[in-house]
């Protein structure tokens, strides 16, 4: 039988939704028993949330002041110490998981399966490569632990109707001091989080300035949407990096995605191909974004977007 250990992603206060999506993926493994590991300074609140997730058998907590911030070099030896007895160790394909899980895999002496989009059987998975233009079916060897990260856009979070047991785990790992957290600058906003929002409005290079992005924010606020951007808009400094959608930014799957002034480079399309409905507004009728858009409108975004925002009143 498969025993899966999932490493919880959290900010010390609450559980990131990535954990519930990772549980959803693990639950596709036939007969899997799923434990969630919370490594934290103080784990009570986060562990309580994790215990409510459906399909979770048990929540393990390790409380240590060193775990106040998620440093891979600090967390990895603890995960390895607790991985004994499990057949799988899973984490989310977020910057948290991408930082931590390969470090865990290397210490366990196994290759990692990155970005699982579907479970075929306990050791066989599908994952995107080449910016999502190829789907690779990959099989892990029988015997060693399977370490994997889970593609967020491929899974819906499990519901929270559970009451799993919460247990303190003994962890005798040696924790290094060579890596120290300094600070986090977050462009905190009241808008829905880009990675979990049901609706997302994104702007591209055609916005031409940071000031002009205002019309994107106004439309997003009217729709109750999160805001994203193309790489070109982030590189040009119109908006901060955490808004980038695409192969090397965030891969998202909202119900509704509006691409405004985005030509649709293949690296951007990778980030949105699981969206429910894609709307494209672009003045270039030949832009590749129209090849994937469900609804396309050719025209001047500086005229169309304010008109759309006003019409939604």
């Amino acid at each position: 039988m498969s025993k899966v250990l999932i490493i919880a992603e959290h900010d010390g206060q609450s559980l990131n939704q990535s954990t519930a999506k990772t549980v959803a993926c693990a639950a596709e493994i036939p007969g899997a028993s799923i434990d969630v590991l919370v490594l934290a300074d103080s784990a009570t609140a986060v562990a309580g949330e994790a215990a409510r997730l459906d399909s979770v058998n048990r929540v393990l907590t390790v409380e240590n002041a060193a775990n106040a911030n998620p440093l891979a070099a600090v967390l990895a030896p603890q995960v390895v110490a607790l991985a004994a007895g499990y057949s799988h160790v899973f984490g989310p394909t977020t910057t948290f998981g991408k930082d931590l899980m390969p470090r865990v895999a290397a210490l366990l002496g196994v290759n990692q399966i990155s970005d699982v989009m579907a479970v075929v059987d306990s050791h066989t998975f599908k994952r995107p490569i080449y910016a999502g233009n190829v789907v690779l079916t990959v099989r892990a060897p029988q015997g060693p632990l399977v370490v994997a990260t889970v593609r967020m856009a491929s899974y819906q979070p499990v519901a929270g109707n559970n009451q799993a047991a919460i247990e303190k785990a003994d962890c005798a790992a040696e924790i290094p001091s060579h890596t120290r957290y300094v600070d986090l600058k977050s462009g905190s906003t009241d808008r829905p989080d880009l990675q979990t929002a049901a609706k997302v409005v994104s702007g591209g290079r055609a916005l031409a300035s940071a000031e002009n992005f205002k019309i994107i924010f106004e439309l997003a606020d009217k729709l109750g949407a999160g805001v994203g951007a193309s790489r070109a808009a982030v590189d040009a400094g119109y908006v901060p990096n955490e808004m980038q959608v695409g192969q090397t930014g965030k891969i998202i799957a909202p119900d509704l995605y509006l691409a405004i002034g985005i030509s649709g480079a293949i690296q951007h399309l990778t980030g949105i191909k699981d969206a429910g409905t894609i709307v494209a507004i672009n003045k270039d009728a030949e832009a590749p974004i129209f090849e994937v858009a469900d609804i396309g409108l050719v025209g001047d975004l500086f005229r169309i977007v304010p008109e759309l925002t006003a019409a939604l009143k």
């Binding site: 900010d11 440093l71 977020t94 910057t95 948290f96 060579h178 890596t179 120290r180 957290y181 300094v182 600070d183 986090l184 600058k185 977050s186 462009g187 990675q195 901060p240 990096n241 955490e242 965030k250």
Partner: peptide
């Protein structure tokens, strides 16, 4: 001292 692009913004860490 390294600034890292993480999902929620920019994280700074110090490493030996």
């Amino acid at each position: 001292r390294v600034v890292r692009e993480v999902d929620v913004g920019l994280e700074t860490i110090e490493i030996d």
